[in-house]
């Protein structure tokens, strides 16, 4: 398994990245940590003309607080965010989900934005971004825009990013007082891709449940103040509406059942965490 030929460009500035992306018209692939792109190159599922390395651009490094938002630059590795001293205090849900992303050996290289760019339907970081109503910052030569996670993930490894756009950063809202968070996933082994992953954020008004690994993208639903059997019915309806995938690892029915079980567990746990 060896990649096909490509030119390699090591960009020193954002302007250079935007120029290359604009000039190559979709034939350029951005490389950051490479944990998703390199296997795709090696298996020749991706055959870009140019691989564009963005890891040495100073503007893309670093985690910052922008008001009530955690802004994570495109060059921030998953291990760096997991080790950020303020992580648990600022956003408990991220502290719960990040240890489930790949293995320590891949988190040391893989970037937070790279996982969002790939948009694997069972990946934890896109799921967390959606659960928290985060945003993706995209930029081109011409300007910048922000896209809500809800609109960004459009299908199996398909996103709202245009060919000439760079994911410059992603934005996670900070946790608010009175919120409770929970996360669980089911996989054969820790570190495997989740068969189903569920994240919940509870506040005074209700619970937002985000589900990954089931449909072709992560899906979220907000349930307003449901108790007991009402919750069961609502989860049942939600599980049925999801267009559950069927593959080697699990049937669609099995995935829906996991949504009912894990969904209830995380909702109850998130509510308990509020108290």
């Amino acid at each position: 398994m060896k990649p096909a030929r490509f030119d390699y460009v090591r960009a020193d500035s954002l302007a250079e990245v935007h120029d290359v992306l604009a000039a190559e018209c979709g034939e350029a692939a951005v490389i950051a940590g490479g944990q998703s792109l390199v296997p795709l190159l090696s298996m020749r599922m991706a055959r870009p003309k140019v691989v564009l390395d963005i890891m040495r651009i100073p503007e893309l490094a670093g985690i910052s607080l922008d008001g009530d938002t955690i802004r994570v630059g495109a060059a921030v590795r998953q291990a760096e965010l997991l080790a950020w001293s303020q992580l648990k205090a600022r956003q408990p849900l991220l502290a719960l989900t990040l240890p489930w992303v790949g293995h320590a050996q891949t988190r040391a290289r893989g970037t937070v934005c790279g996982s969002v760019a790939l948009a694997d339907p069972s990946a934890e970081i896109p799921l967390t971004l959606l659960a928290l109503r985060g945003e993706v910052e995209l930029s081109t030569k011409a300007g910048r825009r922000r896209v809500a996670a809800e609109d960004f993930f459009q299908g199996l490894m398909s996103t709202a990013r245009a060919d000439d756009e760079l994911i410059e950063a992603i934005r996670f809202p900070c946790g608010r007082p009175g919120e409770g968070h929970a996360f669980r996933e089911f996989a054969r082994r820790h570190g495997d891709f989740a068969i189903v992953a569920c994240a919940a954020v509870a506040d005074g008004k209700g619970v937002r449940l985000a589900v990954g690994g089931v449909a072709d993208r992560p899906v979220a639903r907000t349930f307003a103040g449901l108790g007991g059997s009402m919750l069961g019915q609502a989860l049942d309806a939600f599980a049925h509406e999801l267009e559950a995938r069927e593959d080697l690892h699990a049937t669609a029915a099995y995935r829906r059942e996991l949504v009912r079980q894990l969904g209830r567990q995380v909702i109850e746990e998130a509510r308990r965490c509020r108290a």
Partner: peptide
């Protein structure tokens, strides 16, 4: 495996663990 799953090629790059098979030499 040459796609980052088996871990046989794990090394350290600048003090952090890395799969050598998921890294381009030029990187």
């Amino acid at each position: 495996c040459e796609h980052g799953v088996c871990g046989a090629c794990t090394i350290e790059i600048d003090g952090a663990l890395a799969r050598a098979c998921l890294t381009l030499a030029v990187q």
